[in-house]
């Protein structure tokens, strides 16, 4: 799907005030996948808000990210049920293996990591979602294998 673009989104909010900040940021993230430096700056100019303020507000919420999503976007559920079933270990493994903090993307843009509070699939805990596909009753070993699979696929593709 083609991007709408920051300017078009801002044009849809012609005389917006600071109370429109979060909806605008949400729309931009929906469109672009993340909030770029340029996006934050442009929103700042549009709403007459300093970039530091926008960054402060955006970092208050888990939903905003400041790096583009990777080709494989891994969302790990940290809700209560998943936590009890060991999602903390799954997250630790993913962070170590990918050398990422939640919200970040690997330099090759292949993987990005995110945590959410609950996916509403507690019966399948612990749950991981990769690019919209759910993986039930995940363990660190299982997720490690999945990550390796993606890596192998990528290197085969690159060779082919």
């Amino acid at each position: 799907m083609a991007e709408t673009g920051i300017e078009t989104i801002l044009q849809e909010h012609p005389s917006a005030g600071r109370d429109s900040l979060i909806p605008i940021l949400q729309e931009i993230q929906e469109d672009q996948g993340y909030l770029s430096t340029e996006a934050v700056t442009r929103v700042g100019e549009h709403l007459n808000l300093p970039a530091s303020k926008i960054y402060g507000v955006a970092t208050f919420y888990n939903q905003f990210r400041f790096q583009p999503k990777g080709k494989y976007h891994i969302t790990i559920c940290r809700g209560t049920a998943c936590h009890v079933k060991g999602s903390g270990n799954v997250l630790d493994m993913a962070m170590k293996r990918l050398k990422l903090e939640p919200g970040q993307t690997t330099r090759d843009r292949l993987f990005s990591l995110e945590t959410v509070a609950c996916m509403g699939a507690c019966g399948l805990a612990p749950v991981v979602n990769i690019n919209g596909e759910f993986y039930a009753k995940i363990t660190p070993q299982k997720l490690a294998r999945i990550i390796e699979q993606f890596r192998e696929e990528e290197s085969t593709n690159a060779e082919g």
Partner: peptide
């Protein structure tokens, strides 16, 4: 009226920083 710094993040992880947590030298 400069607003080079603000509260970044939330709760126990909150800190005072510049936009994008860059150095003061590249801030306003």
């Amino acid at each position: 009226g400069v607003s080079a710094i603000d509260f970044i993040g939330r709760g126990s992880r909150a800190f005072i920083g510049t936009a994008f947590d860059g150095g003061l030298n590249v801030s306003t």
